[in-house]
């Protein structure tokens, strides 16, 4: 059996719907049509009353989820593209994320954000929004990079009593396959050392994990051993795994597909600089996409975001330092 990242997301929702009557899915075209990416394919047929097409009203979709959560349900909101969650921003950061703090009523909602670039998607169907939501207290932000994590972390997200922003990467939807779904997994908030090494640590998440893996494989031929940490969850950040790795390698490159100003990579570098300064043999480095909107043309797009070759270039510089 082979299962894709996208199928894993579908399977997790199928299981959640089947095992908990409080779970429902609300989003544009998620019903009979099965979602723009087919992440809810057939779920409507399995649970016609709990897989529901929403009007194009991201603000009200999230508001509705909060209201349903107040009543004890566990809604999953599918944003058609992460980019459009900006319209629901207010409800996410001011309503959902503050609910428990203000009222002692938990807010178990999962907001699925099909994120990240694919060739030809352009400025408004390619964004990585994790930083924006991570900035606000009360949110948990997950960024699964593997089929197994897409499945198990989505199940965790639905079970967690706080609002989870679930950034699933569109590029991985079909590119990534696994033999089977996992039975046992790491807790969602733990980072994972995907590959061990001694010359430098890469800290990354989501689709960039795979660019980093390609770069590390290339460099192996020259005798370089690169350790790779997959954050999995970018909020909270599992700093002890990150610092443990840097203690072994002394060098770190943080990679993110999101825009460079602020964000996960700068948070990582900032924390390493203050919490692990004495572990470093070279200044910590980070790599993000270019500070422009995301371009449409595939040739521009490939250049705009970090790739295996730009990662490799950064790593070689870092190791020479």
């Amino acid at each position: 059996m082979s299962i894709s990242y996208l199928e894993a997301i579908r399977e997790a929702q199928s299981l959640a719907l089947a095992t908990d009557e409080n779970v429902f899915i609300y989003g544009q075209d998620v019903g009979a049509f099965g979602g723009a990416f087919k992440a809810t394919k057939n779920l409507f047929h399995e649970h016609p009353d709990r897989v529901i097409d929403a009007p194009i009203s991201e603000d009200a979709m999230v508001g509705l989820a909060v209201g349903a959560a107040i009543e004890g349900m566990r809604p999953i909101i599918e944003m058609q593209f992460a980019d459009f969650s900006s319209v629901g921003f207010n409800q996410i950061v001011n309503q959902a994320a503050t609910l428990f703090w203000r009222t002692a009523v938990p807010c178990p909602i999962t907001i699925r954000l099909p994120s990240g670039g694919t060739p030809g998607s352009g400025p408004f169907h390619s964004q990585c929004m994790e930083t924006i939501y991570a900035h606000y207290p009360g949110t948990i932000v997950m960024t699964p990079a593997t089929v197994e994590d897409a499945y198990s972390m989505l199940l965790d997200a639905i079970a967690i009593d706080d609002p989870v922003i679930f950034c699933e990467h569109k590029y991985l939807n079909y590119h990534l396959k696994a033999d089977s779904l996992p039975k046992q997994t790491l807790p969602a908030k733990s980072a994972r050392i995907v590959r061990s090494g001694r010359h430098a640590t890469v800290v990354t998440y989501s689709a960039m994990l795979h660019e980093a893996l390609r770069a590390a494989n290339n460099m192996k031929n020259d005798g370089y051993e690169i350790e790779i940490v997959d954050l999995r969850c970018i909020k909270p950040i599992d700093m002890s795994t990150v610092l443990g790795s840097i203690a072994r390698t002394g060098r770190v490159l943080a990679i993110g597909e999101a825009f460079p100003w602020g964000g996960v990579t700068s948070e990582i570098i900032s924390r390493i600089s203050s919490e692990g300064f004495n572990l470093l043999d070279a200044p910590p480095v980070r790599l993000n996409s270019i500070d422009t909107p995301i371009p449409y043309h595939p040739d521009l797009w490939r250049y705009h975001r970090p790739t295996a070759s730009s990662v490799e270039e950064e790593l070689r510089k870092l190791i020479r330092e």
């Binding site: 509705l64 909060v66 209201g67 107040i70 009543e71 349900m73 309503q95 009523v105």
Partner: peptide, 29 residues
């Protein structure tokens, strides 16, 4: 909210969809 009175946030208009959600949930159940 246990008594059916959700706590307002400042952002005007934002509470209406929360009421929608409370009604929607009750209907689903």
């Amino acid at each position: 909210s246990h008594e059916g009175m959700p706590t307002m946030i400042s952002h005007l208009g934002a509470m209406i969809s929360v009421v929608n959600g409370m009604l929607f949930a009750r209907r689903l159940r």
